[in-house]
Amino acid sequence: MLEPVDKIWMDGKLVPWAEANVHILTHSLHYGLAAFEGIRCYKGKSGSAIFRLQEHVDRLFDSAHIGMMEMPYDRKQISEAIVETVRANRLDACYIRPLVYIGYGAMGVHPGDNPIRVAVAAWRWGAYLGDEALANGMRARVSSFTRHHVNVSMTRGKISGYYVNSILAKREAKADGYDEAIMLDPEGYVAEGTGENIFIVRRGKIKTTPLTSILEGITRNSIIDMARERNISVTEERFTRDEMYLADEVFVTGTAAELTPVREIDNRRIGTGKPGPITLALQKAFFAIVRGEDPAHESWITRI
């Protein structure tokens, strides 16, 4: 259950949380065409900061462009709205959700000239997959649901309707007693989780799914850069589920999931069954960066 805060930014102004409403015939509610982002603000020793704000705003605009939704605001205005929302709610650490959606007007699959609306919400949110998973690793299963094909869903877009696929896979995994689902692409190679990118480590080298049928994760890109800075080999290459079983380490990344180790997949222990040394090193470095403790990556954070 979300813990309400004071304000949500809607179409250029802050409104009370309880009054941030839309009409029941809002087009995106019925047909799923909307673009969104997940962004985190972290509390550090010298104040709070938003992680990779500009990259998230750029991806929001890219997603809207893919969905043929013309943004009524520019990038600077949206960035300022995000910062304003965090400040207005006096949040030192939070999850931030910008949403671009098609408003009330015409119904039917074609939205006609319905207005494009924008909202920004923020709320307190801890570890997405739980503190236990973040510290000791999660249990995952390969889903019976297939991830998107590039000619079915344009996978560079973070589009709301695409996440029906994720919801079904997540429910299946949770019903079977797992923490998360791992999804394969239409050709049977490992794609991504329901909201995370996947990395495997074997013999000291990292491999991650290439940008074919997956979302280009901002945390994913950050981890790749961080690994290469430490002279750890990173290859973007397809891999199979059995190669994943044989990995020494597996971890997932995402704004919500941050960097979460995977200790077991399909009832097969991964490595020693505990987070491995590369996973732990990158996780520690990641949290130092987002909390503003790494001056080498100061450009990745926007201080509040």
Rank of each mutant, 00 (worst) to 15 (best):
M1T: 13
E3D: 12
K7T: 12
I8F: 04
W9H: 10
W9E: 05
W9M: 03
M10S: 04
M10K: 13
D11F: 03
V15D: 04
P16L: 02
A18L: 09
A18I: 01
A20C: 05
V22N: 09
L29C: 02
L29N: 04
H30V: 02
H30L: 12
A34Q: 00
A35F: 02
K43L: 01
K45F: 11
G47T: 00
A49M: 02
R52D: 03
Q54A: 13
Q54T: 13
E55F: 09
R59C: 02
L60K: 01
L60D: 07
F61G: 08
F61P: 14
D62Y: 11
I66Y: 12
I66P: 11
M69S: 05
E70K: 14
Y73F: 15
A81C: 11
I82C: 13
E84Y: 04
R87G: 03
N89M: 07
N89I: 11
A93T: 14
C94V: 14
C94S: 05
I96V: 15
L99V: 10
Y101C: 09
Y104G: 04
A106G: 12
V109I: 15
V109L: 15
N114I: 07
I116M: 02
R117C: 15
R117W: 06
V118L: 09
A119Q: 09
A122D: 10
W123A: 12
R124K: 15
G126L: 07
L129Q: 09
E132V: 11
A135M: 13
A135F: 10
N136C: 14
M138L: 15
A140S: 12
R141N: 13
S143Y: 10
S144V: 08
N151K: 14
V152A: 13
S153K: 06
I159W: 11
G161M: 08
N165T: 13
N165P: 14
S166M: 06
I167E: 14
L168G: 03
R171W: 13
E172C: 07
A175E: 15
A175K: 12
E180I: 12
G188Q: 09
G188C: 01
Y189A: 06
Y189F: 13
A191T: 07
E192Y: 11
E192I: 08
G193H: 05
T194N: 02
F199Y: 09
V201Q: 06
V201M: 05
K205V: 04
P210I: 04
L211V: 10
T212F: 09
I214L: 04
T219I: 02
S222Q: 01
I223V: 15
I224Q: 01
D225Q: 10
D225F: 06
D225A: 05
M226N: 03
A227C: 03
R228Y: 02
R230A: 14
R230K: 08
N231H: 08
T235K: 11
E236L: 07
E236H: 01
T240R: 05
R241S: 04
D242G: 00
E243L: 06
M244C: 01
L246G: 01
D248N: 06
E249A: 00
V250H: 06
T255E: 05
A256I: 02
L259S: 08
T260C: 12
R263V: 08
E264L: 10
E264M: 11
I265F: 01
N267D: 14
R268H: 11
T272H: 00
T272E: 02
T272D: 01
A281P: 03
Q283M: 06
F286R: 00
A288C: 05
I289L: 04
G292M: 02
E293P: 01
E293L: 11
H297E: 05
I301Q: 14
T302Q: 15
I304D: 07
I304N: 15
